[in-house]
């Protein structure tokens, strides 16, 4: 049995689920921050939020799918778990780094806005 295909079929749903769910949570909760920056312009904020969400999906889902081609060959059943955890762990930590980076820039922009006032 080709264990790589087994790993793909477990990895892809998990990573899609994580990416889409986190995208939605950012979409909902990030709106207040954008409202803060754009001072209550709700329509503009909704559009920008939507654009950011689409960009996020493109980049993250694309990266998750591209990295499949760089996996090593999975020889044994136990390697399925090893490979899965390694790859999932890497992508989740990348998501975390991007996330904290976003928070940093959001607070930087918000603070510089309030300083200007």
């Amino acid at each position: 049995m080709n264990y790589n295909i087994v790993t793909y079929s477990v990895y892809l749903p998990i990573i899609f689920f994580i990416t889409i769910r986190i995208g939605w949570i950012f979409n909902k909760n990030g709106e207040v921050f954008l409202l803060n920056i754009f001072k209550g312009n709700t329509a503009l904020v909704k559009n920008i939020n939507r654009l950011l969400l689409i960009g996020y999906y493109l980049v993250n889902l694309g990266y998750a799918v591209v990295t499949i081609s760089f996996w090593e060959k999975v020889e044994r059943p136990i390697e399925v778990i090893n490979t899965l955890s390694g790859v999932l762990g890497k992508i989740i930590i990348l998501l975390a780094i991007l996330h904290y980076n976003n928070i940093f820039w959001l607070t930087y922009i918000t603070n510089s806005n309030t300083l200007k006032q």
Partner: peptide, 21 residues
Amino acid sequence: NKLFEIGFYLINIGWALLILK
């Protein structure tokens, strides 16, 4: 609060998976 919570989840579960092997 929610944003920090998600960051916390992500970084911790990611690290737990990385050191699983």
